[in-house]
């Protein structure tokens, strides 16, 4: 029963959120970036946001993280509305943004140090370094790490605070294809181990199908949710199964990227 309510507390509800920014060419007018976004994530769900660049995916993530506030609408985690950034909503960017002046270990500790709970939770640091397979790099500085390793450190740094919701803003976008597929499995492993609610922004359809329970497709200018597609494939998923490829074809069709484009 306790576990049940704890799960509920990590659900995410977004209702009718609008956000506009001053237009870069004419500061007097405002341009709508998000127009009435409504989206709910059940606790422990992994949902992907897919859409063309400029559709407001990252803006939405920043709103959920609490780094920006919406013009109108409501964002809630469990029963609490989001008013500002907080350790219960972790955020991982495409650039790992590791603090270059800290070693791998200290980067992972940063979340605990920031909340003044490092002393009590020091044992967890080793646990998380093992979790992402970086024990032997504890004292290395970020500029010695490859892109994949740095992103794993960034994941561990975000996860050590035990966030209820983990927001991933194209976290694997800068990695090469092979590292990327390995990292997808790694993120899935972390997700299954911890059952964190995850919202993943990506523009890789395969990644979205491979990883998520649902795929939310957004359109641009202003950003709106066009459709939500449930992914009912059984895990672990096979990237080359017929069902996988069929779903992929449907989504590409929906995004007007199917192979039979009309010649002009």
């Amino acid at each position: 029963m306790v576990a049940e309510s704890a799960m509920e507390a990590s659900s995410l509800r977004i209702r009718e959120v609008r956000k506009s920014f001053p237009a870069p060419d004419d500061p007097a007018t405002r341009r709508l970036a998000l127009d009435g976004i409504s989206l709910s994530l059940a606790a422990g769900e992994l949902v992907s946001l897919v859409g063309p660049s400029g559709c407001g995916k990252s803006t939405l993530l920043r709103l959920i993280a609490g780094l920006d506030s919406p013009d109108s609408g409501e964002l809630m985690v469990g029963a609490e509305s989001i008013v500002g950034p907080n350790a219960e909503r972790g955020l991982v960017f495409q650039d790992p943004n590791l603090f270059p002046w800290l070693t791998v270990r200290r980067n992972i500790e940063a979340g605990l140090a920031a909340r003044h709970v490092l002393h009590e939770n020091r044992h967890e640091v080793d646990e998380f370094m093992r979790l992402v397979g970086l024990e032997s790099f504890a004292d290395a500085y970020p500029h010695h790490l490859s892109g994949g390793m740095a992103q794993r450190v960034a994941l561990a740094r975000a996860l050590i605070n035990h966030p209820k919701v983990l927001l991933l803003d194209e976290p694997l976008g800068a990695l090469d294809a092979f590292t990327r597929m390995r990292m997808q499995d790694e993120v899935l492993r972390l997700w299954q181990a911890r059952r964190t609610t995850m919202l993943l922004v990506t523009h890789d359809i395969d990644e979205a199908i491979y990883m998520s329970d649902r795929i939310v497709i957004m359109t641009q200018r202003p950003g709106r949710i066009e459709r939500t597609i449930p992914v009912a494939l059984r895990r672990p998923r096979d990237r080359s199964s017929a069902d996988f490829l069929q779903l992929r074809g449907e989504i590409l069709e929906l995004l007007h990227f199917a192979g039979n484009a009309v010649a002009i």
Partner: peptide, 19 residues
């Protein structure tokens, strides 16, 4: 982005300035 990351890690103003 360093400041944003630190904020989502739960950092307060002291941490943001000094760390």
């Amino acid at each position: 982005s360093y400041l944003d990351v630190a904020r989502t890690l739960g950092a307060g103003r002291r941490y943001l300035i000094f760390r």
